[in-house]
Amino acid sequence: TSSPISALNTALVRVVKNSNTLGIAIEGGANTRQPLPRIVTIQKGGSAHNCGQLKVGQVILEVNGISLRGQEHEEAARIIAEAFKTKEKDHIDFLVAELG
């Protein structure tokens, strides 16, 4: 099937882990009204906020190259949490899309 996402503005955003928290809240996931996780909050002082490029309303397509398409909420959240926790990398690469 063709992807409507591919027609949207996407951006690759690198978030350096320069704080103890990532500091985003996400909603949605497969089998919900919001099929891809959407950023609903960015907390001041978190790594995401410090990065300055993530915005509320963006949907997250990939995390370190892992597609979130078809992942339910809990699994998508786990993938993001693992990406932040791992010491193998000092950053997380998010592929995000601007909607509307």
């Binding site: 928290t21 990532l22 500091g23 985003i24 809240a25 996400i26 909603e27 949605g28 996931g29 089998n31 919900t32 009204r33 919001q34 609903v40 909050t41 907390q43 909420h73 809990e74 959240a77 993001i80 949490a81 932040f84």
Partner: peptide
Amino acid sequence: REKRLTLPPSEITLL
């Protein structure tokens, strides 16, 4: 058979 009309609401997780 009942057809589900609405999807479940999204959860929100703070990361």
